[in-house]
Design a protein around this nucleic acid. Structure first.
Lengths: 214, 214
DNA sequence: TCTTTTTTGGAATATCAACTCCAAAAAATG
DNA sequence: CATTTTTTGGAGTTGATATTCCAAAAAAGA
């Protein structure tokens, strides 16, 4: 249960059997793939039907409407980010950890051929202005992403590895912005360099706040 | 003539009279407004028709098809950015100039109620993967934006205000990423804070490369 | 086993949006 | 002034797409 504040399940769904749960999960996963490749507007319900091998009534049964499906995809991608970046298992509380995290981000873009950008960022760009409820989910997704970054930096500061005047929350926001902006430039230019530069510059900045020999 | 490399006018347009030029310009301007508010997919040709007070045949006469209109909007926004940020008139070659530039960026978001994000960034997010020719225009737009930033920083370095090992090109990319990522977070959260933090952090980093007392 | 609920199929609808086409007005050109 | 080119109007076509609806199969529950 990750719900906070005003976020609620789209509607009181009837309870699902194991089979229903599996179908629903498969639809979300496949919809997420299509949407990261083509955007929300570029992905029709029929596209999802075909790719997932389900009928229209199944989609509307499990998600109510397209917006409901998109909300499920946002949650799915928010979880996927935390998992892929190991933010649920590893702590981001050393320069080695930051470097490993940076390498994973770059490698992920490279694997995708620099396509798609950041899943949450792309959804935010497409939906934030026009879909208020999607925006809430996205704000929440960014917050859940930012928290472990901020916590790791705070741990470093509290341990005395970063100067006392270093601001973990601010640095976390700036790091997130570097990821998003870097991913966008990388997506546009189809090369990982911009993301690498954005991340290396920000991490370099954090290094410059180190208390160790510099 | 800003065209470089493989960029060409969408088609050999028949020459326009002054009246035609004016109509075309008005359509582009209004389409740009609609598209920044609703995205490309969310803006129909009919929306543009109504808002600009023109007929369908005029749109297709001046732009060929929707893609042609979008290309014109990309160019328009690329120019608008350089003009609004004064990058054609002022040089970004001092900390005061950087600070003024940062303030203008934040004020612009504030004026828009944090809606729309960065015009070029939003277009890039929507089009970069699926429209190869739009992507070329967008790469070009980013490059034209990056150049004066990079030049300003280089001037500072060459003047000895930045350390000799400061990398103007890299810092320009990182700054651009901060703008894009910060604007995206600001757009999602509907407050200017994230953009402010992203920019202040990056500019702070550049300040830390200053040769002046610090 | 009987009943209720959940899951699935697939056709039908209705709206919307990009684009085409035929002409006519207006302007430029010679 | 005659003619060619540009500009504008607006209806019509075509295709796509979100959504609904009526049932039937399958599973769960009692």
């Amino acid at each position: 249960m990750t719900a906070t504040s005003t976020l609620q399940p789209t509607r009181a769904e009837p309870r699902l059997t194991a089979k229903g749960e599996a179908t629903r999960a498969r639809i979300v996963e496949i919809a997420a793939e299509l949407i990261i490749a083509q955007g929300v507007a570029g992905t029709s319900i029929e596209d999802v039907q075909r790719a997932a091998g389900v009928s229209a009534s199944q989609l509307y049964h499990y998600f109510g409407d397209k917006r409901g499906l998109v909300h499920a995809v946002i949650e799915f991608q928010a979880d996927a980010i935390l998992i892929n970046q190991r933010l649920r298992t590893d702590r981001l509380d050393s320069f080695e950890a930051l470097q490993a995290w940076r390498d994973r981000l770059v490698a992920a873009q490279d694997r995708r051929g620099c396509l798609g950008g950041c899943a949450i960022g792309s959804l935010a760009s497409e939906l934030a202005d026009s879909q208020p409820d999607a925006r809430e989910h996205l704000v929440n997704a960014f917050a859940r992403w930012e928290a472990p970054i901020s916590e790791g930096l705070r741990a470093m500061r509290d341990r005395g590895e970063l100067r006392a005047d270093a601001d973990p929350d601010g640095l976390a926001v700036a790091l997130l912005a570097a990821v998003e902006g870097g991913a966008l430039l990388t997506r546009t230019r189809r090369e990982t360099k911009p993301l690498e530069i954005a991340l290396d510059t920000m991490i370099g900045h954090i290094r410059s706040l180190s208390t160790a020999a510099g």
